[in-house]
Design a protein around this nucleic acid. Sequence first.
DNA 1: GTAAAAAACTAATAAGTGTTAGTTTTGAAG
DNA 2: CTTCAAAACTAACACTTATTAGTTTTTTAC
Lengths: 207, 207
Amino acid sequence: MAKIIPGKNGSKKDVIMQKASLLFMRKGFTATSMRDIASAIGVEAPSLYNHIESKHEILKDICFRVAGLFTAYLREVELSSQSSLSKIEYIIRFHISMMIEEYESIYISDHEWKHLPEPFLNDFKNQRQAYRTRIAVILQNGIDNREVNDIDPSVAVLTILSAINGIESWQRSRKKIDSKLLEENMVTILTRGLSYQAAARPGNKRK
Amino acid sequence: MAKIIPGKNGSKKDVIMQKASLLFMRKGFTATSMRDIASAIGVEAPSLYNHIESKHEILKDICFRVAGLFTAYLREVELSSQSSLSKIEYIIRFHISMMIEEYESIYISDHEWKHLPEPFLNDFKNQRQAYRTRIAVILQNGIDNREVNDIDPSVAVLTILSAINGIESWQRSRKKIDSKLLEENMVTILTRGLSYQAAARPGNKRK
DNA sequence: GTAAAAAACTAATAAGTGTTAGTTTTGAAG
DNA sequence: CTTCAAAACTAACACTTATTAGTTTTTTAC
């Protein structure tokens, strides 16, 4: 009876993807049934298959779209000519803004990727690893130039990325901190550090 | 046929909890069936019910045990008389060591809590919120004393905790970074910051 | 208005879910 | 060796799962 009504600028598949994203985030991929998705749209479950191939395809599309966005931005940053620390800051700011704008997709790509079927699972894990390695290379350059404190680059990458991904729990929280404040504070912590002495020192100014 | 063999210092329920933890972590709570858990132990699924009440009880026990450990340590720190920054450092170090020693439980408590049934779900969320607020209070004290850089305490808590929780993806990674190195590097990043200028400044030494 | 295509529907499948009932096996105590 | 409880087993239940087949309705194009 009901029909899938595509949004202004989106195919019917996009509507499904959007509703599915919301549910995957709230309940998790496995705990979300095709009937859940269908009823959120106002349609019967089998009707979805006129637009998508399978439940796993939805997950796959979400995860790889996100991975593609991050990889594309990273390439831009790599090709730019800035200091290493500045590159890292741009990457941090991009991650934060993505987390705010595309929160659901990123949350899913971060928490539900393990349910990808092979060969996508392996592909995804490789892309993820490669992405981190490329950031670690930037950090290593920064260490060599004495722009960045001498710490293990892979630990730093881990710390930075997971810190940012934690914004998801902020999104869910009642009192919504202003997103610009969030970004500035987080950039401050991650680039200058927590200690007062460190922050009080001038220099390393940007923008 | 097969019998559940309790470990040296663990009841049969503990054996179930341990195997279940591993599977919940690898596949997620919902994607792990009672039959999966049973066959990992070498037993039939209904046999598990001689030792546990339900699948959800396993998750509940894992989540609340973890929450209890963190809350207990936090109380100790709160009652101690140290600088705020030092308190924060102790909390960070505790989180890191817990992440290394009790990796599976903490991962689950962090990623699968949303599958807790009510009223446990609400209870857990409240505990979590209260825990973060108490850390934010310590940070605010540090800001007032000019020990800690003036940033939003709730953003700082979010950044710290999620950065540490990211260690889970390190655990899974091939090349295992030495855990002491990991701890020191992460503490460095989170307490002194990334920028070289900041780190070059002496002071703020501990231990 | 009619024909074709798109997309909804109902019905059904085979497999998998957590869990219960009832029964048999096992391990320890006397 | 017998007794008794703990803990395993098999069989089954009531439901849910993703997905397919076949059919009817709706939309689009001429």
